[in-house]
Amino acid sequence: MHSSYDAVVVGAGQSGLAAAHHLRTRGLRTVVVETGPEPVGSWPHYYDSLTLFSPAKYSALPGLPFPGDPDRYPHRDEVVDYLRRYADTVTADIHTSRAVTEVDHDGHLFTAHTDTGHSYTAPRLIAATGGFATPNTPTLSGQGDFTGNILHASRYRSPADFAGQRVIVVGAGNSAVQIATELAETASVTLASRTPVKFVPQRPLGRDIHFWFINSGLDSLPIGHLISEPPTAPIFDTGRYRGALAAGKPVARAMFTRLEADAVIWPDGTRSKVDTIILATGYRPNLSYLGNVGALDDTGTPMHRKGISTTHLGLGYLGLEWQRSLSSASLRGVGRDARRLVKQLDAAATRNSKGRNEIGIKR
Protein backbone atom coordinates (compact mmCIF):
# COMPACT_ATOMS: atom_id res chain seq x y z
CA MET A 1 0.00 0.00 0.00
CA HIS A 2 1.37 3.41 -0.98
CA SER A 3 0.38 6.89 0.27
CA SER A 4 1.55 10.39 -0.65
CA TYR A 5 1.89 13.30 1.79
CA ASP A 6 3.49 16.71 2.08
CA ALA A 7 5.72 15.42 4.89
CA VAL A 8 6.75 12.10 6.42
CA VAL A 9 7.95 12.01 10.03
CA VAL A 10 9.77 8.88 11.19
CA GLY A 11 9.23 8.35 14.91
CA ALA A 12 6.32 9.35 17.15
CA GLY A 13 8.16 10.23 20.33
CA GLN A 14 8.50 13.77 21.65
CA SER A 15 10.52 14.86 18.59
CA GLY A 16 8.17 13.39 16.00
CA LEU A 17 5.06 14.74 17.70
CA ALA A 18 6.57 18.24 17.95
CA ALA A 19 7.49 18.08 14.27
CA ALA A 20 3.97 16.96 13.32
CA HIS A 21 2.47 19.83 15.33
CA HIS A 22 4.46 22.44 13.42
CA LEU A 23 3.96 20.75 10.05
CA ARG A 24 0.20 20.72 10.55
CA THR A 25 0.29 24.33 11.78
CA ARG A 26 1.68 25.21 8.35
CA GLY A 27 -1.14 23.28 6.67
CA LEU A 28 1.01 20.40 5.44
CA ARG A 29 -0.51 16.93 5.09
CA THR A 30 1.61 14.87 7.44
CA VAL A 31 2.05 11.23 8.38
CA VAL A 32 3.99 10.06 11.44
CA VAL A 33 5.27 6.48 11.30
CA GLU A 34 6.10 4.79 14.61
CA THR A 35 7.68 1.40 15.31
CA GLY A 36 5.99 0.98 18.68
CA PRO A 37 2.34 0.29 19.48
CA GLU A 38 1.59 3.88 20.56
CA PRO A 39 2.98 7.39 20.00
CA VAL A 40 5.07 7.76 23.16
CA GLY A 41 8.60 7.07 21.94
CA SER A 42 11.07 5.34 24.25
CA TRP A 43 9.63 6.64 27.52
CA PRO A 44 7.79 3.46 28.64
CA HIS A 45 11.07 1.53 28.41
CA TYR A 46 13.04 3.67 30.87
CA TYR A 47 13.62 2.57 34.47
CA ASP A 48 10.76 2.74 36.95
CA SER A 49 12.04 5.58 39.15
CA LEU A 50 13.05 7.95 36.35
CA THR A 51 12.01 11.55 36.90
CA LEU A 52 12.66 14.58 34.75
CA PHE A 53 15.46 16.91 35.76
CA SER A 54 13.45 19.90 34.56
CA PRO A 55 10.20 21.11 36.21
CA ALA A 56 6.86 20.48 34.52
CA LYS A 57 6.52 24.11 33.44
CA TYR A 58 9.66 23.76 31.31
CA SER A 59 8.88 20.25 30.04
CA ALA A 60 5.99 20.77 27.64
CA LEU A 61 5.72 20.42 23.89
CA PRO A 62 4.28 23.30 21.80
CA GLY A 63 0.58 23.92 22.28
CA LEU A 64 -0.09 21.80 25.39
CA PRO A 65 1.12 22.74 28.90
CA PHE A 66 2.26 19.93 31.18
CA PRO A 67 -0.56 19.43 33.71
CA GLY A 68 -0.33 19.68 37.49
CA ASP A 69 2.04 21.56 39.75
CA PRO A 70 4.33 23.47 37.36
CA ASP A 71 7.27 23.29 39.79
CA ARG A 72 7.29 19.53 40.30
CA TYR A 73 9.59 17.08 38.51
CA PRO A 74 7.34 14.69 36.54
CA HIS A 75 7.76 10.93 36.77
CA ARG A 76 8.32 8.69 33.74
CA ASP A 77 4.71 7.50 33.69
CA GLU A 78 3.43 11.09 33.78
CA VAL A 79 5.50 11.85 30.68
CA VAL A 80 4.03 8.80 28.91
CA ASP A 81 0.50 9.97 29.74
CA TYR A 82 1.33 13.49 28.59
CA LEU A 83 2.63 12.24 25.24
CA ARG A 84 -0.53 10.17 24.73
CA ARG A 85 -2.65 13.27 25.30
CA TYR A 86 -0.39 15.34 23.08
CA ALA A 87 -0.70 12.83 20.22
CA ASP A 88 -4.48 13.22 20.43
CA THR A 89 -4.09 16.97 19.77
CA VAL A 90 -1.98 16.46 16.64
CA THR A 91 -4.13 16.26 13.51
CA ALA A 92 -1.54 14.36 11.50
CA ASP A 93 -2.03 10.73 10.51
CA ILE A 94 -0.16 8.66 13.10
CA HIS A 95 0.55 5.08 12.04
CA THR A 96 1.93 2.83 14.79
CA SER A 97 3.43 -0.68 14.78
CA ARG A 98 5.18 0.07 11.49
CA ALA A 99 8.96 0.27 11.36
CA VAL A 100 10.56 2.30 8.59
CA THR A 101 13.23 -0.02 7.21
CA GLU A 102 14.52 1.94 4.23
CA VAL A 103 14.22 5.34 2.59
CA ASP A 104 14.69 6.07 -1.12
CA HIS A 105 15.23 9.48 -2.69
CA ASP A 106 14.77 10.35 -6.38
CA GLY A 107 16.11 13.90 -6.21
CA HIS A 108 12.78 15.40 -5.23
CA LEU A 109 10.70 12.87 -3.30
CA PHE A 110 11.51 10.65 -0.34
CA THR A 111 9.84 7.26 -0.07
CA ALA A 112 9.80 5.57 3.33
CA HIS A 113 9.30 1.79 3.19
CA THR A 114 8.04 -0.12 6.24
CA ASP A 115 8.19 -3.69 7.49
CA THR A 116 4.43 -4.02 6.95
CA GLY A 117 4.68 -3.32 3.23
CA HIS A 118 3.29 0.20 3.51
CA SER A 119 5.26 3.04 1.91
CA TYR A 120 4.96 6.81 2.18
CA THR A 121 6.18 9.44 -0.28
CA ALA A 122 6.73 13.16 0.35
CA PRO A 123 9.10 16.00 -0.59
CA ARG A 124 9.92 16.46 3.10
CA LEU A 125 11.16 13.80 5.51
CA ILE A 126 12.03 14.34 9.16
CA ALA A 127 14.04 11.65 10.92
CA ALA A 128 12.75 11.98 14.48
CA THR A 129 13.96 8.70 15.91
CA GLY A 130 16.26 10.86 18.01
CA GLY A 131 19.54 10.05 19.68
CA PHE A 132 18.27 7.67 22.36
CA ALA A 133 16.95 4.69 20.41
CA THR A 134 20.00 2.42 20.18
CA PRO A 135 21.94 1.59 23.38
CA ASN A 136 25.66 2.30 23.18
CA THR A 137 27.31 -0.88 24.50
CA PRO A 138 31.10 -0.66 24.40
CA THR A 139 33.07 -3.91 24.50
CA LEU A 140 35.01 -4.20 27.75
CA SER A 141 38.50 -5.66 27.95
CA GLY A 142 38.24 -9.30 29.02
CA GLN A 143 34.48 -9.36 28.48
CA GLY A 144 34.61 -12.77 26.79
CA ASP A 145 35.94 -14.37 29.97
CA PHE A 146 33.53 -12.65 32.34
CA THR A 147 31.07 -15.01 34.04
CA GLY A 148 28.79 -12.35 35.50
CA ASN A 149 25.98 -10.38 33.86
CA ILE A 150 26.48 -7.31 31.67
CA LEU A 151 23.49 -5.22 30.67
CA HIS A 152 22.84 -1.74 29.36
CA ALA A 153 20.92 0.71 31.53
CA SER A 154 18.07 0.51 29.00
CA ARG A 155 17.30 -2.94 30.45
CA TYR A 156 17.36 -1.77 34.07
CA ARG A 157 13.98 -1.38 35.74
CA SER A 158 14.21 -1.48 39.55
CA PRO A 159 16.56 -2.35 42.47
CA ALA A 160 14.49 -5.43 43.35
CA ASP A 161 16.14 -7.38 40.54
CA PHE A 162 19.62 -6.88 42.05
CA ALA A 163 19.03 -7.19 45.81
CA GLY A 164 22.11 -8.52 47.59
CA GLN A 165 24.29 -8.44 44.49
CA ARG A 166 27.70 -6.85 43.91
CA VAL A 167 26.98 -4.34 41.14
CA ILE A 168 29.14 -1.93 39.18
CA VAL A 169 27.39 0.89 37.32
CA VAL A 170 29.54 2.35 34.53
CA GLY A 171 29.03 6.01 33.71
CA ALA A 172 29.12 9.55 35.09
CA GLY A 173 25.84 10.99 33.82
CA ASN A 174 22.47 11.55 35.45
CA SER A 175 21.15 8.05 34.73
CA ALA A 176 24.31 6.37 36.02
CA VAL A 177 24.24 8.28 39.30
CA GLN A 178 20.50 7.90 39.82
CA ILE A 179 20.57 4.15 39.14
CA ALA A 180 23.67 3.57 41.29
CA THR A 181 22.24 5.56 44.20
CA GLU A 182 18.93 3.73 44.33
CA LEU A 183 20.63 0.34 43.84
CA ALA A 184 22.95 1.08 46.79
CA GLU A 185 19.96 0.78 49.12
CA THR A 186 19.70 -2.98 48.48
CA ALA A 187 23.01 -3.98 46.86
CA SER A 188 26.75 -3.39 47.14
CA VAL A 189 27.34 -0.80 44.41
CA THR A 190 30.35 0.85 42.82
CA LEU A 191 30.05 3.71 40.33
CA ALA A 192 32.90 3.43 37.84
CA SER A 193 33.68 6.27 35.43
CA ARG A 194 36.50 7.55 33.24
CA THR A 195 35.97 11.10 34.48
CA PRO A 196 34.86 12.29 37.94
CA VAL A 197 31.18 12.94 38.49
CA LYS A 198 30.35 16.64 38.22
CA PHE A 199 27.53 18.14 40.27
CA VAL A 200 25.50 21.27 39.61
CA PRO A 201 23.02 22.64 42.18
CA GLN A 202 19.44 21.90 41.11
CA ARG A 203 18.12 25.14 42.61
CA PRO A 204 20.78 27.88 42.78
CA LEU A 205 19.55 31.03 44.54
CA GLY A 206 16.20 29.33 45.17
CA ARG A 207 15.34 28.85 41.48
CA ASP A 208 15.53 25.67 39.45
CA ILE A 209 18.62 25.75 37.24
CA HIS A 210 16.45 25.58 34.12
CA PHE A 211 15.02 28.98 35.06
CA TRP A 212 18.53 30.38 34.74
CA PHE A 213 19.25 28.42 31.56
CA ILE A 214 16.13 29.74 29.86
CA ASN A 215 16.17 33.33 31.10
CA SER A 216 19.86 33.77 30.35
CA GLY A 217 19.38 32.49 26.80
CA LEU A 218 21.90 29.69 27.37
CA ASP A 219 19.24 27.01 26.86
CA SER A 220 18.61 28.00 23.24
CA LEU A 221 22.07 29.25 22.29
CA PRO A 222 22.78 27.74 18.81
CA ILE A 223 26.20 26.29 19.56
CA GLY A 224 25.54 22.62 18.80
CA HIS A 225 27.54 22.73 15.56
CA LEU A 226 30.58 23.80 17.57
CA ILE A 227 30.49 20.65 19.75
CA SER A 228 32.62 17.91 18.21
CA GLU A 229 32.16 15.52 21.13
CA PRO A 230 29.06 15.99 23.35
CA PRO A 231 30.22 16.48 26.93
CA THR A 232 28.92 14.34 29.79
CA ALA A 233 26.04 16.23 31.34
CA PRO A 234 26.58 17.32 34.96
CA ILE A 235 24.37 15.90 37.70
CA PHE A 236 21.58 18.28 38.70
CA ASP A 237 21.47 17.71 42.44
CA THR A 238 19.61 18.95 45.49
CA GLY A 239 22.34 17.38 47.63
CA ARG A 240 20.99 13.84 47.62
CA TYR A 241 23.44 12.36 45.11
CA ARG A 242 26.51 14.23 46.31
CA GLY A 243 25.67 13.08 49.82
CA ALA A 244 25.20 9.47 48.71
CA LEU A 245 28.62 9.36 47.04
CA ALA A 246 30.24 11.04 50.05
CA ALA A 247 28.75 8.30 52.24
CA GLY A 248 30.03 5.57 49.94
CA LYS A 249 26.57 4.50 48.80
CA PRO A 250 27.57 4.03 45.98
CA VAL A 251 31.36 3.98 46.11
CA ALA A 252 32.88 6.07 43.31
CA ARG A 253 36.01 4.73 41.60
CA ALA A 254 38.01 5.34 38.43
CA MET A 255 37.05 2.99 35.59
CA PHE A 256 38.34 -0.56 35.90
CA THR A 257 40.93 -1.71 33.36
CA ARG A 258 39.58 -5.16 32.50
CA LEU A 259 37.32 -8.05 33.42
CA GLU A 260 38.57 -11.40 34.64
CA ALA A 261 36.25 -14.38 35.29
CA ASP A 262 34.01 -13.17 38.12
CA ALA A 263 35.84 -9.93 38.88
CA VAL A 264 37.10 -6.56 37.68
CA ILE A 265 40.67 -5.32 37.86
CA TRP A 266 41.07 -1.71 39.01
CA PRO A 267 43.82 0.71 37.85
CA ASP A 268 45.82 0.07 41.05
CA GLY A 269 45.84 -3.67 40.33
CA THR A 270 43.34 -4.66 42.99
CA ARG A 271 40.61 -7.15 42.18
CA SER A 272 36.90 -7.01 43.12
CA LYS A 273 34.34 -9.71 42.59
CA VAL A 274 31.18 -8.59 40.82
CA ASP A 275 27.85 -10.15 39.88
CA THR A 276 26.43 -7.56 37.47
CA ILE A 277 27.78 -4.67 35.42
CA ILE A 278 25.27 -2.04 34.27
CA LEU A 279 26.43 0.12 31.39
CA ALA A 280 24.95 3.62 31.67
CA THR A 281 26.97 4.53 28.61
CA GLY A 282 24.39 6.40 26.60
CA TYR A 283 22.76 5.83 23.25
CA ARG A 284 23.38 6.28 19.55
CA PRO A 285 20.99 7.58 16.87
CA ASN A 286 18.81 4.98 15.17
CA LEU A 287 19.03 6.11 11.56
CA SER A 288 19.93 2.92 9.71
CA TYR A 289 16.91 3.38 7.42
CA LEU A 290 18.80 6.29 5.81
CA GLY A 291 21.84 4.16 5.03
CA ASN A 292 21.09 3.73 1.32
CA VAL A 293 20.54 7.38 0.43
CA GLY A 294 23.99 8.68 1.41
CA ALA A 295 22.79 10.87 4.27
CA LEU A 296 25.06 9.29 6.91
CA ASP A 297 28.82 9.26 7.31
CA ASP A 298 30.93 6.12 7.72
CA THR A 299 30.03 5.87 11.43
CA GLY A 300 26.28 6.10 10.80
CA THR A 301 26.14 9.70 12.03
CA PRO A 302 23.84 12.06 10.10
CA MET A 303 25.52 14.82 8.13
CA HIS A 304 23.65 17.97 9.07
CA ARG A 305 23.90 21.50 10.37
CA LYS A 306 21.47 22.40 13.14
CA GLY A 307 19.17 19.59 12.01
CA ILE A 308 19.14 20.45 8.30
CA SER A 309 20.69 17.74 6.14
CA THR A 310 23.78 18.86 4.28
CA THR A 311 23.31 16.06 1.74
CA HIS A 312 19.62 16.11 0.78
CA LEU A 313 17.21 18.98 0.21
CA GLY A 314 14.02 18.41 2.22
CA LEU A 315 15.62 16.09 4.81
CA GLY A 316 15.83 17.07 8.46
CA TYR A 317 16.61 15.62 11.88
CA LEU A 318 15.11 16.16 15.31
CA GLY A 319 16.01 15.08 18.82
CA LEU A 320 19.73 14.59 18.33
CA GLU A 321 21.95 15.43 21.28
CA TRP A 322 23.43 18.92 20.80
CA GLN A 323 21.66 19.14 17.43
CA ARG A 324 21.38 22.88 17.82
CA SER A 325 21.60 23.69 21.52
CA LEU A 326 22.10 22.00 24.88
CA SER A 327 18.31 21.40 25.12
CA SER A 328 17.81 19.93 21.62
CA ALA A 329 17.24 16.37 22.86
CA SER A 330 14.87 17.35 25.67
CA LEU A 331 11.14 17.92 26.04
CA ARG A 332 11.76 21.59 26.76
CA GLY A 333 13.92 22.17 23.68
CA VAL A 334 12.65 19.96 20.90
CA GLY A 335 9.59 22.09 20.15
CA ARG A 336 11.77 25.12 19.47
CA ASP A 337 14.01 23.10 17.18
CA ALA A 338 10.97 21.60 15.42
CA ARG A 339 9.51 25.03 14.64
CA ARG A 340 12.75 26.25 13.09
CA LEU A 341 13.39 23.00 11.21
CA VAL A 342 9.89 22.81 9.70
CA LYS A 343 10.10 26.42 8.55
CA GLN A 344 13.43 25.80 6.82
CA LEU A 345 12.35 22.50 5.26
CA ASP A 346 9.14 24.05 3.98
CA ALA A 347 11.05 26.86 2.31
CA ALA A 348 13.54 24.40 0.80
CA ALA A 349 10.80 22.11 -0.53
CA THR A 350 9.02 25.09 -2.07
CA ARG A 351 12.22 26.21 -3.82
CA ASN A 352 12.83 22.68 -5.06
CA SER A 353 9.30 22.39 -6.42
CA LYS A 354 9.53 25.80 -8.09
CA GLY A 355 12.84 24.83 -9.70
CA ARG A 356 11.37 21.64 -11.11
CA ASN A 357 8.39 23.51 -12.52
CA GLU A 358 10.66 26.06 -14.18
CA ILE A 359 12.74 23.29 -15.72
CA GLY A 360 9.58 21.69 -17.02
CA ILE A 361 8.41 24.95 -18.56
CA LYS A 362 11.75 25.48 -20.30
CA ARG A 363 11.55 22.06 -21.76
Rank of each mutant, 00 (worst) to 15 (best):
T232L: 02
R242G: 12
E229T: 15
G243T: 08
F162S: 03
P196R: 01
A192R: 05
V177T: 06
G224C: 05
E182K: 03
A247K: 12
S220L: 12
T232C: 03
S188L: 05
I179M: 01
I179W: 00
G248W: 13
G243L: 08
G171W: 12
S216H: 08
I235N: 00
T190E: 14
I214D: 15
S220T: 15
D219R: 14
P201I: 03
P230E: 09
A160L: 10
T186V: 10
A246C: 06
G171A: 02
F213M: 12
R240V: 10
G248Q: 10
Q202G: 07
G164R: 05
P230K: 12
H210N: 12
I209Y: 11
E182L: 02
V197F: 05
R194S: 11
L218Q: 12
R203M: 12
A244E: 07
D208I: 07
L226N: 04
L226R: 13
L191Y: 07
A192Y: 07
A176P: 02
G206Q: 02
S220M: 13
L218V: 15
Y241A: 07
G243Q: 08
V169M: 00
F199L: 04
P222G: 05
G224T: 05
P204T: 06
K249G: 04
G173Q: 03
G164Q: 10
R203P: 10
I179F: 01
